[in-house]
């Protein structure tokens, strides 16, 4: 054929892959890419593994080193995330200047949105804690302690990143017994972030709501805040846009009462009952007298105007 074709998927599978890459109205859980930088220490390596096991079905752990320094040049990072289709990334690195370094960030439309760099002061792995662990894919309760989370711009972004990383997909309903994992983030005034992970134990309390007990499950990480690259407000606003379908529009004249029943007020236009066509029946037919009187009723105006002449006419007719 003379005309050159625009790239079109040749196989059904390829078509499905391309369709899967298209933007969706409601997005699923964000996938995370977990990888090393140029060099990694033992701490970093086991930390990345632990983060992977916390995030598990929605994460990819890369085992090789990557020559990426995100704060100097983030273009290779964007390529890597585009390749793996992951909007979240966790990069661990270790250098003399910044030992045990962790960079957590996220992407919007395959380009960097924001990222923060955290140093690791203390770390105890998931395996260092005895006791039972949680099932893969459990949605955790996220607890943020300390006033710093609301005061500082860096920490506000960090909070959002942590929620994005650990909050799984939105669910309409959740099994009460399935609330078994808690991640607690504590920000101290001196710029440290303490991450603790607990298993939730539901104990009897004598009433319907159970008494909560926590059992530390690991990992236990003490972060210190290092560098950050925050998004501009415009970009964040753009990224937080909702689809028109998901926006709740208020319906007019519809309300619900205390019992939950729906009330609506509707407007019905004026009905013209006089000229409406009803069923035709012999019994409903007008007699000749009725028709005559109606005819007269229709012209009262003329009759009043020159009543005398009409009377005269009548007399004449009679």
């Amino acid at each position: 054929m003379s005309v050159q074709r625009v790239v079109k998927p040749t196989t059904r599978k390829g078509k499905r892959v391309l369709e899967g890459r298209e933007a969706e109205v409601i997005e699923g859980p964000k996938q995370a890419l977990i990888f090393h930088g140029r060099r990694g220490s033992d701490t970093i390596r086991s930390l990345l593994k632990d983060i992977y096991s916390l995030k598990k079905p929605d994460a990819k752990l890369l085992s090789r080193k990557n020559d990426i320094t995100v704060f100097e040049n983030y273009a290779p990072l964007e390529d890597l995330c585009r390749k793996h289709e992951t909007p979240l990334f966790v990069m661990g690195s270790h250098s003399k200047k910044r030992p045990d370094n962790l960079v957590i960030g996220r992407m919007y439309n395959y380009s960097l949105l924001d990222m923060v760099e955290l140093g690791i002061d203390a770390f105890e792995s998931l395996h260092d804690f005895v006791g039972s662990k949680i099932v893969i894919g459990t949605k955790p309760c996220l607890i943020f302690n300390g006033p710093v989370w609301e005061e500082n711009d860096n920490f506000r972004h960090l909070k959002s990143i942590f929620i994005d990383l650990f909050n799984r997909e939105h669910v309409d309903g959740i099994r009460l017994q399935g609330l078994e994992h808690t991640l607690s983030f504590t920000a101290t005034p001196d710029g440290k972030v303490l991450l603790r992970s607990y298993k939730v134990l539901l104990k009897k309390s004598g009433c319907r709501t159970p008494r909560i007990e926590l059992d530390e499950m690991g990992p236990r990480i003490d972060f210190s805040f290092r560098r950050s690259k925050l998004s501009s407000e415009d970009l964040m606003k753009e990224a937080c846009k909702k689809h028109k379908v998901l926006k709740v529009t208020k319906k007019k004249n519809v309300s619900r009462d205390g019992l939950g029943s729906l009330h609506g007020r509707i407007h019905v236009g004026k009905q013209n009952i006089q000229s409406i066509q009803t069923r035709k029946m012999k019994g409903l037919k007008k007699t000749t007298d009725e028709r005559k009187s109606e005819k007269l009723r229709k012209r009262p105006f003329i009759i009043e105007a020159n009543s005398e002449s009409v009377n005269n006419k009548r007399i004449r007719v009679e």
Binding site: E22, A23, E24, V25, E27, K30, P87, R106, M107, Y108, N109, L113, S160, I163, D164, N167, H170, V171, D172, G173, I174, R175, L176, Q177, S231, M236, E238, A239, C240, K241, K242, H243
Partner: peptide
């Protein structure tokens, strides 16, 4: 709500606004 012998609680929609991964289609 009781579904298959387990108690399932109905969660309200999320209030905390998180950025999307891709622009709105």
């Amino acid at each position: 709500q009781q579904i298959d012998e387990t108690l399932v609680v109905k969660l309200p929609p999320a209030k905390f606004v998180l950025p999307r991964a891709r622009p709105v289609p």
